[in-house]
């Protein structure tokens, strides 16, 4: 007996919950053969606002968590993704990948998560510094997370692009609101399920689906977003984001890399969403022969 196929409704991810969009709207992107991929939430401005509130709430404890523990949690994401490999591969194929490319993309995503998991408790040592100053001060600079980061995921990949620009952000103790690829959204939502079943606290990552055009504006004008990471290639949209960012001097970073290359990951993507705090601590000589330290 033939059976009716169940078209999955993909929900959004806000504050560790999977609500439907408050607007009740959805869209159905098509695969190459013109068949609908699924029912995808068409998120509204209010969803963006809710996600930002959740991200801000989660920021305090996530940024203060021990770096080593953050690393453990990120590693756990990789473990969970490894366990659900098959689902991601089949979703990628559904969205137009060949089997070989799909497998490569999932493997590379897992490796990339492990890469950033490793950096969690190391970037601080590598990037911070003790600075020589011409007074009796112990002067040092350390990194602190920027805050809530809005992420516009690359449009042309479903998984690897999202992973590549999101991981350095949370690795550094930021929380984020991600707008998934509009036409290839399946892996983003399934990745939210992975995040939820690993140990990432609710609100650290919030994932919305919908049209960039509609959501960019709210994300980039919102006064409680501290930085925007743009992974798309629409220069007009980027210009608009940069103009909106002026409102509260958000940092804006735009990446256009080929995320499928093994070397499209680096330490400086972590430091992009970090602020540098320099402290002047009154003290005697440091490192001189008369230093008593």
């Amino acid at each position: 007996m033939s059976r009716l196929e169940i078209l999955k409704t993909y929900k959004i991810y806000i504050g560790g919950q999977f609500p439907r969009t408050e607007s009740g709207r959805f869209y159905s992107p098509l695969d190459k053969k013109g068949k609908p991929l699924g029912n995808i939430c068409l998120s509204s401005r209010k969803d963006v606002r809710n996600a930002i509130v959740a991200a801000r709430k989660a920021f305090g404890s996530w940024s203060e968590r021990a770096a080593f523990n953050r690393g453990q949690i990120l590693y756990r994401i990789a473990e969970m993704l490894e366990g659900r490999k098959e689902q991601f591969i089949s979703e990628l194929i559904q969205q137009g990948s060949t089997k070989k490319n799909a497998e490569e993309e999932v493997n590379l995503s897992i490796d990339r998560i492990v890469y950033y998991a490793g950096w969690c408790d190391k970037y601080q040592q590598v990037l911070s510094s003790v600075n020589p100053v011409a007074s009796s001060h112990f002067n040092f600079s350390v990194l602190e997370p920027t805050g809530v980061v809005g992420i516009l995921a690359p449009q042309n990949t479903s998984l690897i692009g999202l992973v590549s620009i999101m991981l350095p952000v949370i690795c550094g103790g930021n929380t984020c609101v991600v707008i998934a690829s509009e036409n290839l959204p399946l892996c983003a939502v399934t990745f939210a399920e992975v995040l939820n079943s690993s140990d990432v606290p609710g609100g650290v990552v919030n994932i919305l689906t919908g049209t960039n055009k509609e959501l960019n504006e709210t994300l980039s004008t919102h006064m409680d977003v501290n930085a925007i990471v743009y992974g798309g290639d629409d220069l007009e949209a980027l210009k608009q984001i940069q103009e909106n960012a002026v409102l509260n001097v958000k940092r804006v970073f735009s990446y256009s890399k080929d995320w499928s290359k093994a070397d499209s990951q680096d330490l400086y993507m972590i430091s992009d969403t970090q602020e540098i705090k320099t402290t002047w601590h009154p003290i005697e000589n440091i490192g001189g022969s008369s230093s008593s330290y």
Binding site: T221, H222, M223, D224
Partner: peptide, 8 residues
Amino acid sequence: GVYQSSDY
């Protein structure tokens, strides 16, 4: 017209 932050 823009959402606010408690920072301000």
